[in-house]
Design a protein around this nucleic acid. Sequence first.
RNA 1: GGGAGAUUAGCUCAGUUGGUAGAGCAACUCGUUUACACCGAGAAGGUCAGAGGUUCGAGUCCUCUAUCUCCCACCA
Length: 714
Amino acid sequence: MNEIFLSPYNPLSTEQTIYKLWEDSGFFNPDVCIEKGLTAVDADYFSIVLPPPNVTGTLHMGSAYMLALEDIMVRYNRMLGKKTLWIPGTDHAAIATQSKVEKIIQKAEGVNRHDLGREAFLGRVEKFAQESHDTIVDQMKKMGCSLDWSREAFTLDEKRNLAVRTVFKKMYDDGIIYRGHRIVNWDPKGQTTISDDEIVYQEEKTKLYYLTYGPFTIATARPETKFGDKYVVMHPDDTRYTQYSHGEQISLEWISGPITATIIKDESIDMEFGTGVMTITPWHSVVDFEMAERHNLDKEQIIDKYGKLLPIAGEFAGMKIADARKGILEKLKSKGLLTKEEDYVHNIATAERTGGIIEPQIMNQWFIHVNKEFPYPHDNMPHVQKGEMVTLKKLMLSVVENNDIEIIPDRFEKVYTHWIGNLRDWCISRQIWYGHQIPVWYKGDEIYCDVTPPTEPGWEQDADTLDTWFSSGLWSFSTLGWPNTGNSVKGKTGPENDFANYHPTTVLETGYDIIFFWVARMILMSTYTVGQVPFQHVYLHGLVRDTQGRKISKSLGNNIDPVDMIEKYGADAVRMALVIGTGPGNDSKMSEDKLKAYKHFANKIWNITRFVLSNTDNSPLQKQEVPLTDTDQTLLAEFKTLIADIKQDMDTYRFYLAGEKLYGYIWHRFADVIIEESKAKLPDPATAVSTQYMLRYILEKSLVLLHTFMPFIT
RNA sequence: GGGAGAUUAGCUCAGUUGGUAGAGCAACUCGUUUACACCGAGAAGGUCAGAGGUUCGAGUCCUCUAUCUCCCACCA
């Protein structure tokens, strides 16, 4: 017996050297496993792409949970003999990373990105991203992740950029991507558009002001936007206003003087709210914009992109809207137009990353058309025929409704389909610098879109970059060699054949909080671009919260660094604590008590091993069958039943159960009962050999089973 | 406004198709037996939120109620 077993288990001193051994072995690379005869060339495959962590700093416990779950799946399938690929990578996270670096340089040097200029600023961002990347990779290795580092990817590297440009061009040619003046979510603070999903609503207590608008009374929470309102809208069935007809013009006195207003009848009006009459501001409200589109009404800009009032506001022009409100109210009051005000609670839209208050604006931006019909060009989707007229929405719905993709837990299928139902065109252009620049060039009125720039002089590239989720959406296939997959052959080894061998990926394992951001976008991109689902199963994990059940956030300062926990309790204990007791889709709380318990378990395993080795080391134990006592036969049969049970749990994604059963068996059955009873049987020549065989068998198999959960100690 | 989830031992949470309630931590008693005190043995602790229903049998299925959490939409 190795004398290492004489002292308690020390994870810190062993984990790093063990990870090194794994890396040197090359077994995380499926090609090496095939070369060395560990995996059959024609074996089934199992593949996962790692949800790439944002290069905005360090990993948190939530990422550690994700890594633990995925490594468990990957090691399990690799041990089953499947060709197993787990691709590592990181995400440039465009706006998140840019705003983080902007904050850093603002604080440290008092400069903003415009002071530095595009090129110099991007240099800073790249340096920051590189440092974050290195930290994150180190953290992933400390967690014991069996990722194939030879295939590492970055959402903004050259290969992924080629994939982005290729998809953009294809969508542009198909009319799926279009440029147009449409209402978008403008963040005056970040000076960029953001998508609907990047909006965070915050409750605000304010006033609802009632204003006299000719013969009507209208209510508004934002008097500063009302300068240009020249349409007054009511429900066609509202009996209070039957004397007014659609299109009728009336003259009235408004904020800056007399105006002519037009009556509009629209069924979207809620007769119950306020007076049942409202004026509209199509340039700065999504709902009003849609109404204006329906009736072909004029739209006028009131607020500029810095959040300041335009000349239409008369003496208030140039003022920030928040500053102007008071003066505007006074003016309304003095003109006798303000009749009533009451307390009002509503939600205001803010930008997730900058906290800026969103001001809807009509702008010329790039969009992905989710409702445009086109003939489906691929012929390998089980429930969509080649040539069938589809939309991106239909594709996204079809694969989940037909179970081409299984979502675990299944209640999220409803969440997903409901979200698709409400989906609007996706605004993909961003006025930030860090990201994939849009592959479109302009010369006067001419537009040129291609994978490569135009060769003639005089063309200028669109300055905007793409929403970070555009490149993330391609992740399942951009990491597998696409678009250079022309010679990709199933059954042949090497990265050039990855697409044929490993796509669709087997499982996407990620947090339920990014089902819309990412899961849906990957489904959109993959079914459209390569005619395959991106993954066959989606396993959604919950959030890891702090001991008080709060969300981990920077402002609360309650982030636990997994590396600190690994140093204190060992990576194996961290993995067990994260995985056990938490089913898919459920949030969990991280407590040090739980970590301590699994560190003790690691030590228990250590001592079990020490006992078994010291009692079987010098025995003539061979691989061949040993005549077993009835007792030992029963014990082994019981153990084999457990293995079958655990295998079933593993196959049905119930890792939390499998881990708990292993824990319970090893500690409270094997150690507390079987080993205790063996102490009487070992010295007896009649039972010694059988007992030794039985102990050794259970120990070795237990370690194998436990390896997926606790790879280092086992 | 729409939807989802939770409510089980003092605390944190498991409990897969309905069949005698489980784990970790904490607390209690005993034990320092040559794998382990990062241990073992034992005992204690729950009308499984409440009410009704289905069933031979319900924490598990159905209905309603209460409380909490989250997601989506966002009304001038």
